[in-house]
């Protein structure tokens, strides 16, 4: 297993460079401002490009995308079938693939199975369909406990599942990104796709909530 024996060589070197943090101001706003000035002076970043990325994640990409996928699956059984068999292809039909969401799997919640998504090792999250992850998703309490005590975690989100429901936790340890297809709530029979999409919450697509008819 050569590939597992390699180089810690550069790990020690990288770790050494982290020692600079003891010599820098504690306020991240000051440090980040200084870094942007430095990179701009060196031609390593264009501030207008930073603006463009911020705009991308503030207004172009977010959980409204995922909500459209879910609502379409609720009203279009052919699409739902394609979504569950090849999510990458089906989400591609809606032009909603992209970085941190090029290899997609959709997990269907049913009365018997409840799916929950986590990244225990870092913060992997399906960006093109859900936008940037919330702070709690990236935080130690959620990352540590989702895989050992999912029922306890769900309770903290106000969701208590009956004992007969199987919880399946998906730890995003590779570049596959998971989107939960929540159950369509009762009382929404007369709604169209757009009205349904408005009901779908980000939390329900991570698996820490259900969708309610409001």
């Amino acid at each position: 297993m050569n590939q597992h024996k390699h180089a810690h060589d550069d790990s020690a070197d990288i770790a050494h460079h982290h020692s600079i943090h003891a010599e820098l101001p504690s306020d991240p706003a000051l440090r980040v401002k200084a870094l942007e000035s430095l990179l701009t002076e060196k031609g390593l970043v264009d501030p207008a490009t930073i603006d463009a990325w911020v705009e991308t994640y503030e207004s172009k990409i977010g959980p409204r995308n995922g909500a459209k996928v879910v609502a379409k699956a609720w009203v279009d059984s052919d699409f739902k079938r394609r979504l569950l068999t090849d999510a990458t292809k089906a989400i591609g039909e809606l032009d909603m693939l992209g970085a941190q969401g090029q290899h997609m799997v959709v997990l269907e919640n049913t009365p018997d199975i409840h799916n929950l998504v986590v990244c225990t090792l870092c913060s992997c999250y399906p960006l093109p369909v859900l936008g940037l992850p919330p702070v709690w998703y990236k935080s130690a309490p959620y990352r540590s406990r989702a895989v050992i005590d999912p029922r306890g975690v769900l309770k903290e989100f106000g969701l208590e599942l009956p004992e007969h429901v199987k919880i399946r936790v998906w730890d995003s340890t590779a570049e596959v990104r998971y989107l939960v297809l929540p159950e369509r709530p009762a009382g929404t029979e007369g709604m169209n796709e757009e009205q349904l999409a408005a009901l779908v919450t980000r939390d329900s697509m991570i698996g820490v909530g259900k969708v309610s008819a409001r």
Binding site: V135, W136, P141, V153
Partner: peptide
Amino acid sequence: DMGGMHGHGPIEHE
């Protein structure tokens, strides 16, 4: 590598 650790406190859902 946090999976399974205890002691990190409650989840702060904003």
